[in-house]
Design a protein around this nucleic acid. Structure first.
Lengths: 233, 233
DNA sequence: TAGATTGTTAATCGATTAACAATC
DNA sequence: TAGATTGTTAATCGATTAACAATC
């Protein structure tokens, strides 16, 4: 590995970053000044080792014998997550889901500003949700480019999702947050994050079913291998 | 490992199950009769090896020289996911998000039947969304037990989420699908699946920011280690 | 039968945990 | 200083991939 090269950060680490961020935000609220990897790990259910390894992917934020300064670490992680600059968002699809997202205060609090929504339904176009205006879908490209929108949320039905992605791929958006239950393709320059709600529900269902399933499997194995199975080693 | 014992299935495998299920459903639609691990892997972006390893956690569903029968494998995975029995759901919180979920047809198609919604707001109580009635929050415990509800969806604001979980922990529900941005605790007998939308958005933001971040890191490393760094080994 | 493809064991890879010298 | 806790290297664990005998 040559000078200055950096090993790629694994997805597992990335998915833990928002947890650190949230936890540190809460500690900050409570005016906690410093925190050790041990304590941070205890709160989040990680080992101290993992906490230190995770953070050291991005820099040396701690101090021996002291730990980490909560405020400083919070700000560093915010920077890593790209929260130091404001993000401009639009929501494509002003149905119930789009409206729900438009009303979600948490996003704005983290610097994600929802500028507008877009829909094909003439009954919705011209209305407002909270204070977010709903515009005609035909104006999407123009609006996005004109207002330097960063992120587009896809909240349209499955059938329309890829069309929307195609439109967006002609714009300057850098990210798509996709709620439609299909993988959309928007070319190599746009990052797509999928929220597949059905997958999440099916995972819940699996876990509710797991103990029964394992019993059945165990019985089947018994039958197959005879009453006593000698372990492989 | 004694007779009939079964090694625990890893979360990574579990999270892939819905992908297999979806893919097989689509193949079934197209009247594809058989599929090899190779082909299935190609579609989903997994290796053939991984496909076979994943499936063999649950049984031997294939046939040498043939592959897997699409319909049979689809049904087996449905069983593994607990989709062979219908699930009764209620949605707690009839705001925009609750309404959006109530209108989502995909759930019903997979055997998740939404029976009712619950809210504290007297303006909402008594109304209907699609054909799902909204009842008073006070009737939640009674309704859930009376109608043998399996799964409760938490779609209330952050501040109310734990209260709702406490109520649900006194009922016979087996699973909670939590959309509030807090970890809720509902005791050891109820499985909780969290959908933390903000985490997902922050992950998108990280990835949009990653190349810039890595450049900065690389420069910092250069400075720290001098112009040429000799690799460790 | 010959070819294809499984189920499964072994090898590899990567992520997590443990250990410890460095140092505040 | 002595105690605490980091950053980092080494050891362990688990998940993915490769290989191949079994067999349809």
């Amino acid at each position: 590995m040559g000078s200055g090269e950096v090993k790629r950060v694994s997805l597992a680490v990335i998915r833990r970053l928002p947890k650190y961020h949230k936890c540190l935000g809460e500690l900050l609220q409570k005016n906690v000044e410093r925190v050790s990897s041990q304590e941070l790990g205890r709160i989040l259910g990680f080992t101290a080792s993992q906490v230190r390894q995770d953070l050291n992917n991005f820099g040396e934020f701690g101090q021996q014998g002291y730990g980490y300064n909560v405020e400083q670490l919070y700000n560093e992680i915010a920077k890593i997550l790209g929260l130091n600059t404001e993000h401009k968002m639009v929501i494509v699809g002003a149905g119930k889901l789009g409206q729900a997202l438009a009303g979600y205060r948490d996003f704005e609090r983290h610097g994600f500003k929802i500028l507008a929504m877009f829909d094909v339904d003439p009954h919705l176009v011209g209305s407002k949700v909270r204070d977010v205006p709903v515009y005609d879908m035909n104006d999407l490209i123009y609006y996005v480019n004109e207002n330097e929108v960063d992120i587009a949320v896809i909240a349209v039905p499955r059938e329309r999702a890829q069309e929307v992605a195609d439109i967006l791929s002609k714009t300057l958006v850098k990210g798509i947050w996709n709620f439609a239950p299909v993988e959309v393709d928007a070319g190599p320059n746009i990052i797509v994050e999928n929220v597949h709600l059905l997958d999440s529900l099916l995972t819940l269902s699996y876990r509710m079913n797991e103990s029964k399933l394992m019993e059945r499997l165990a019985r089947k194995n018994e039958k197959k291998t005879g009453f006593v199975k000698i372990p492989a080693e």
